[in-house]
Computed example of a mutant assay.
Amino acid sequence: MESAGYRRSAGTSRGEARRQELLEAVVEDLAANGLVDFSLRRAARAAGATHKVLLYHFAGVDDLLVQAVDRLRERRIDTSLAVAGSGTLASRVAALWPVLTDPRFGHRVLEQSTGLAMYDPTRYAKFGREATDRYLPALLSLCPPDWAAERRAEVAEMVLATLRGLLLDRVTGGDEEGIAAGLRALLRALEREEQSG
């Protein structure tokens, strides 16, 4: 994969502002339309620019895609933490679900990017474990602070794996009733974990 970061526009506030504007337009397109048929040409149309303008500001289509998916992921994490509030671990995780499935946060794109990481881990490693590493601190912050670090890490990994599985099932045409049942089972497991002290 090409090195992350923009190229010739670096170093000026005007160039950075334009880069952010272009990136935001691409993020909105991805959130609405997903990754299927994503290309530099499609990104340029969404941004109201030419592909040459995008290549002036980004190191290539992979760089643009990675940065756009990162932006969607950060929005999702920030909003999830904002709605999680306080309460039990189970109630806080339950509060995340509507955000995780909200189209405004590119739910399909983020799950589709996991597929890219499986399909081509060399090119899209950032969508694999690196994405996991971005979610784990948020999930760790939801765990009771008096838990041992190892316990918090284990529970956060379980929550992440379960939510990711439910989200992937949802995107691939899963049974909504089954997904809801899986979420309820996760929440019950979290309640038991918290009650166990």
Rank of each mutant, 00 (worst) to 15 (best):
T88S: 15
V53I: 12
L89C: 12
A59I: 06
S80H: 01
Y56M: 12
K52C: 12
H57W: 10
T50R: 11
V93I: 14
A68W: 07
I77D: 07
A94D: 15
S80T: 13
G85L: 01
K52P: 03
V66Y: 05
V69S: 02
L89H: 04
A95E: 10
L55K: 11
G87K: 02
L65D: 03
F58C: 02
V61P: 02
H51Q: 14
L72N: 03
V53N: 06
H57L: 13
L54G: 09
A90L: 04
A84K: 00
H51T: 12
L72R: 14
V83A: 09
L55V: 12
T101D: 06
A68P: 14
R71P: 10
D62K: 01
E74G: 05
L100D: 07
R73H: 09
A84P: 07
T101I: 15
G60P: 13
L55Y: 05
P98E: 10
H57N: 08
L72P: 10
D63K: 01
L64H: 03
L55S: 07
Q67W: 00
I77Q: 09
A94E: 15
V99I: 15
D62I: 01
Y56F: 15
T101L: 12
Q67G: 07
L81R: 10
T101W: 00
W97D: 10
R92D: 00
S86H: 02
H51C: 00
E74I: 06
S80A: 14
A95L: 01
G48K: 11
A59G: 15
G60H: 06
L81C: 10
I77N: 07
Y56V: 11
V83E: 08
A95P: 04
D70W: 04
R76D: 06
S86D: 04
H51F: 09
L65E: 03
S86G: 15
L81H: 02
L64R: 00
P98F: 14
S91M: 02
A49V: 14
A82N: 00
L72F: 13
A84M: 09
S91T: 08
D70L: 13
S80I: 07
D70S: 13
T101V: 14
L100A: 10
A95M: 09
D78V: 15
R73M: 11
V69H: 04
A82Y: 03
E74Y: 02
L89W: 03
V83T: 13
F58N: 03
W97M: 07
L55A: 04
T101N: 01
G60V: 12
G85A: 06
Q67H: 12
V66G: 00
Y56P: 04
V83G: 01
A95T: 09
A68G: 02
V53F: 09
V93W: 02
V61N: 04
L96Q: 07
D63V: 08
R73Q: 13
G85T: 08
L72C: 14
K52T: 15
T101S: 14
R75A: 15
V93Q: 08
A59H: 13
V69R: 03
D70P: 05
V99Y: 00
D78T: 14
G87D: 05
